[in-house]
Design a protein around this nucleic acid. Structure first.
Length: 472
DNA sequence: GGAGATTTAGC
DNA sequence: CTAAATCTC
C-alpha cells in the first residue's frame, strides 16, 4: 500500500492536542502528519518575557508529541521559505494551520497562503483560537461592533463548536525531517536575571492549564464576580497565560463556565463575560488593525502627551511613590503577570497622571507579560487611555488611593510586593531586587520616593490636556 | 432619526 | 452631583 502524502501542521499559538480543529482534521485525514514550529521574524520580535515563555511552551508541547510517538520539527527563518523547503524535502502536498488575527500575523499568513496555493499546495487555515470568527459577528446593519455590551448580547446565546477529542496517535512519515535544537534559538536570552524569579510562577502546558481550570471551577468560579476585584485574592482563573499560547481552548473555558452556571454557581455568568471580552478584543483587532499602533479614535491624535523619560523609568521600576501603583509594577516584574484591576490602575496613572502615551505602557507590558496577547493588550491600553472603544461620556481617571482603599483594604497586596514599606519584607517583595537589572541600582533598603505627581494635581493636568485635545 | 444604553469613577 | 459622546437598534 502506498502511503498518502504528508500534511504539514504549522504549529503557532495552538500548543495543544485537545479541542484543536487543525490537528483534528490532520489526524482524521489518515495521512502522515508533520508538526512544524517555525521561529520566524515575528517570533524573534516578541518581547523578552513572552518569547521566553513561548519557548518553554514549545518545549513542553514537543514532549507531548514525543509521548504519542510523533515529533515537533523546529525550523528557523522566513515562514514561507521554511515551508517551501520542507515541502520540497518530504513531498508534502498540504500545509494546514490555526488562524491568528493580529495584523502582522494576518499579513504573513495571507502571503504564505497565496504563494503556496500558486504552487499547487493545499494551504488551509482553521479556527480554534476564538469562539466566534470576527466576521461572523455582525450588527443589524452588517457592520462590526464597537461597544462591548451589544457584542455580548449578540454572542451570548450563540452555539459554540463542540469539543474535539485529542487524537490518540498521529501517523508518522516514512522518514522524519531534521530539526533545529530549541536551545540554539536562545528564546530566553533577553530575560537575563528575571527567568529564575519568574519561572516558579508559571503554569506551562496543556495539562497544567486543564488542572488550573478544574481548580478554578471547583474553588473560585462561584464567587468570581465578587472576589475577582480584590488585588491580593487568588480569585481569577489565571488562564490568560495558557490561552495566549493555545495551551487550552476558549471553548473549553466556555463549556466549563456554562456547566458551572447550570450547576448553580452564579459567579460563572461573569466568567463567561470575561471570556467574551477576549473575543471582543480579537473582533476589534481584526476589523480595526490600527488599534495596535495608532489611536483607535483619530480624534485623539491632537492629545498633548508629555515625554518624560525619567518618570517612565520610575514607573517601570515601581518607584512612582504611589504604593498601589508600585506594588503592581513589582508584581509584573516578579511574576510576569499583574492582577486585572492593577493593570487598569497603572495604565490610568501612566496615561493620565503622567500624561504618557499609551504606547509606552503597551510596549512595556509586551516586554514583561508572560500572558501577553496582542489583542487584549492593545484594547486594554486604549480603553484606559480614552482613545479606544468605550462609549462612556466622561474622561475616566482612577484615583489610586481610592482604588487601594476599595480593593486592597488591609494593604495585603501592597505589602506583598513592595519591600520598602515593611520592616521585614516578605520573600515575594524581595524577589524584585534579584530580578531587576543591576543597572537600576535598586535595593530594598532605599527610601520611598516622593510621589512623582500629586494625585489631585495629576488629575487636573489630565483634564486640562483633555480640553486641549477637544479644542484642537 | 430618536430612544435607550454605555465593564469596572471621582469629588 | 459631575458632564454629556457615541453606538445600536
Amino acid at each position: 500500500m502506498t502511503q498518502l502524502s504528508p500534511v504539514i501542521w504549522w504549529v503557532r499559538r495552538d500548543l495543544r492536542l485537545a479541542d484543536n480543529p487543525v490537528l483534528h482534521a490532520a489526524a482524521s485525514s489518515d495521512r502522515p502528519v508533520i508538526a512544524l514550529f517555525i521561529c520566524d521574524p515575528l517570533v524573534e520580535g516578541l518581547g523578552a518575557a513572552p518569547k521566553w515563555r513561548l519557548g518553554l511552551g514549545v518545549a513542553r508541547f514537543a514532549r507531548c508529541l514525543d509521548d504519542m510517538g510523533s515529533k515537533l520539527i523546529l525550523r528557523r527563518g522566513d515562514a514561507l521559505t521554511v515551508l517551501q523547503q520542507l515541502i520540497a524535502q518530504i513531498g508534502a502536498t498540504a500545509v494546514w494551520w490555526g488562524r491568528q488575527y493580529d495584523p502582522d500575523q494576518v499579513a504573513r499568513d495571507k502571503k504564505v497562503k497565496a504563494a503556496l496555493r500558486d504552487s499547487g499546495v493545499d494551504a488551509q487555515s482553521f479556527s480554534g483560537h476564538l469562539l466566534f470568527e470576527p466576521w461572523q459577528v455582525q450588527t443589524g446593519q452588517g457592520t462590526f461592533y464597537q461597544v462591548y455590551s451589544p457584542f455580548w448580547r449578540a454572542v451570548k446565546d450563540l452555539d459554540v463548536a463542540p469539543h474535539l477529542p485529542a487524537p490518540e496517535c498521529l501517523r508518522a512519515p516514512a522518514q522524519w525531517p531534521d530539526s533545529d535544537s530549541l536551545a540554539d534559538w536562545g528564546l530566553g536570552r533577553a530575560m537575563n536575571r528575571g527567568a529564575d524569579v519568574v519561572h516558579p510562577h508559571l503554569h506551562i502546558g496543556e495539562d497544567a492549564a486543564r488542572t488550573r481550570l478544574a481548580y478554578f471551577i471547583d474553588r473560585n468560579v462561584a464567587d468570581y464576580q465578587d472576589q475577582r476585584e480584590f488585588l491580593d485574592q487568588d480569585a481569577c482563573s489565571g488562564l490568560s497565560e495558557n490561552l495566549t499560547y493555545g495551551e487550552i481552548s476558549p471553548g473549553a473555558l466556555w463549556r466549563a463556565g456554562q456547566h458551572a452556571l447550570d450547576a448553580g454557581k452564579a459567579g460563572a455568568a461573569h466568567f463567561l463575560k470575561e471570556i467574551v471580552w477576549r473575543e471582543f478584543a480579537y473582533h476589534l483587532i481584526f476589523h480595526t488593525p490600527h488599534i495596535v499602533s495608532r489611536n483607535w479614535r483619530d480624534g485623539w491624535d491632537s492629545f498633548p502627551w508629555s515625554n518624560d523619560g525619567t518618570g517612565v523609568l520610575r514607573w517601570k521600576q515601581g518607584r512612582t511613590g504611589i504604593d498601589v501603583i508600585d506594588a503592581a509594577m513589582r508584581e509584573l516584574y516578579v511574576t510576569g503577570r499583574m492582577h486585572n484591576r492593577a493593570r487598569m490602575l497603572v495604565a490610568s496613572y501612566l496615561t493620565k497622571h503622567m500624561l504618557t502615551h499609551w504606547r509606552v505602557g503597551q510596549d512595556w507590558f509586551a516586554q514583561c507579560l508572560v500572558d501577553w496577547d496582542p489583542a487584549a493588550n492593545a484594547m486594554g491600553w486604549q480603553w484606559v487611555a480614552g482613545s479606544g472603544p468605550d462609549a462612556a461620556p466622561y474622561f475616566r481617571i482612577f484615583n489610586p488611593d481610592t482604588q487601594a482603599r476599595k480593593f486592597d483594604p488591609e494593604g495585603r497586596y501592597r505589602r506583598k510586593w513592595l519591600a520598602e514599606i515593611s520592616a521585614s519584607a516578605p520573600e515575594t517583595a524581595q524577589a524584585f531586587f534579584r530580578a531587576c537589572p543591576r543597572s537600576w541600582q535598586l535595593s530594598p533598603q532605599m527610601a520611598r520616593p516622593n510621589p512623582l505627581v500629586d494625585l489631585a494635581e495629576g488629575r487636573k493636568i489630565a483634564l486640562q490636556a483633555y480640553d486641549i485635545k477637544n479644542k484642537t
